[in-house]
């Protein structure tokens, strides 16, 4: 399987604190990967680096079959290249309707002039309706997204992520604030997405990770501690010590 994203030897220091140390990570084109690790392990910072929010002190981040250097690109261009992201704290446009949020995320030309003259096609509207249905927000399409519950905002953001049709989905703690049934539904959605694209899921909940049935990367103090199947890494004594034993 061809490699889609290749992160190698990356380090980041915040005010003298090494949040990421010599981290290497790679993921294939249609692969699901879970990242686990204790609080402060650097999971979110890893996503910040890949999406261009934080630039590392050293290391390389290489993308796609053309081996583009992501470190030379800004956030918007990285997103256009096909990397979509869901934030740890659900981040949606609260003063706008669910419909507007989804429409904005939909994969369509991004330049300002194209956007100015854009009128939603029937196909786009159908797609929005379909996405809303998938994430259970059909009845809330015309509601202001600021009015949604925490869990619904998570759903909306997942919907926005899918709407972008990215080649790589970076999903930071998608299940927080969801009921058990909703969590199961989220796993299904992510597994479905991983059939055609790469998905990286950060999650604390072990049951959730188990249901993803995928390779797991354990982060600790900014570098990879272990990698492999869930059973494999949870049997690792180092992992038990830093993570599970607590």
């Amino acid at each position: 399987m061809a490699t889609l994203l290749e992160v190698s030897g990356v380090s980041v220091t915040f005010d003298g604190y090494k949040a990421i140390r010599n981290l290497s990570f790679s993921i294939g084109e249609a692969e699901m990967r879970a990242i686990i690790g204790p609080n402060g392990a650097g999971k979110t910072t890893f996503m910040d680096i890949v999406t261009g929010k934080t630039s590392p002190d050293e290391g390389r981040v290489i993308w796609g079959e053309k081996s583009v250097n992501l470190l030379k690109m800004n956030e918007a261009r990285i997103a256009q290249a096909g990397i979509g992201r869901k934030f740890q704290r659900p981040t949606v446009f609260e003063d706008q309707t669910v419909h507007a949020n989804l429409l904005m995320a939909l994969k369509n030309p991004r330049p300002s002039f194209a956007c100015l003259f854009y009128r939603p096609s029937t196909r786009d509207l159908d797609r929005v309706a379909q996405l809303a249905d998938e994430v259970g927000l059909s009845d809330a399409l015309m509601r202001m997204s600021g009015e949604l519950s925490h869990g619904q905002k998570q759903w909306l953001e997942i919907g926005m992520l899918l709407a972008q049709e990215p080649r790589l989905l970076l999903v930071d703690e998608p299940a927080a604030g969801m009921t058990l049934a909703e969590r199961e539904h989220t796993t299904d959605l992510l597994k479905e997405a991983a059939k055609t694209r790469a998905v990286v899921v950060v999650e604390h909940d072990m049951e959730f990770v188990r249901r993803l049935e995928c390779k797991v990367t354990v982060l600790h103090e900014g570098s990879v501690l272990a990698e492999g199947s869930l059973d494999h890494v949870t049997a690792n004594p180092k992992v038990i010590e830093v993570y599970l034993g607590r």
Binding site: K53, A76, A79, Q80, T91, D95, R110, S112, M160, Q164
Partner: peptide, 16 residues
């Protein structure tokens, strides 16, 4: 309006 409220989020959607 997205830029007004949260411009970083707009960038991550791919808008310049």
């Amino acid at each position: 309006r997205g830029i007004r409220d949260d411009e970083a989020r707009v960038r991550f959607l791919g808008y310049s």
